[in-house]
Amino acid sequence: MRKRKGITAADWAAIVIVALSIALLSMQVYRDTGNDSQVVIEGGGEMWVYSLDTDVHTHIPGPLSETEVIIQDGSVHIPASPCRDKICISMGQISRPGQWIICLPNDVFVRVEGVEAEDREVDDVAF
């Protein structure tokens, strides 16, 4: 059995390595959380909130049937919907705060909310 008092050099090395790993991880994790946006989905009288950063494939119930909503790689789109005109599908992908997709026949409303980047103009949001 080793009888050594105090902290050895290898202990310090272990502590430093762990501390450095934590510091690196922190930088990695908190680097771009300043503009993390949320996806708010309303449909069938309910509301869902997802992070725009998390990939989600969900089905939102409405009066007609279920509308599919996909959040992937930081943008949202509707790949399939039971409505007649498929306008929600043709609205394509949205990713910036203020953008939205709506399906009136099936009563599904998808919008992106979040803090906007400082260099953005009012007209950017209003198209």
Binding site: R2, R4, I7, T8, A9, A10, D11, A13, A14, I15, V18, S21
Partner: peptide, 17 residues
Amino acid sequence: CLGRQLSFIGISVSGAF
């Protein structure tokens, strides 16, 4: 492997991490 160099402090820190 490193028992001679490392005390319980280093082992505890590594284990917790």
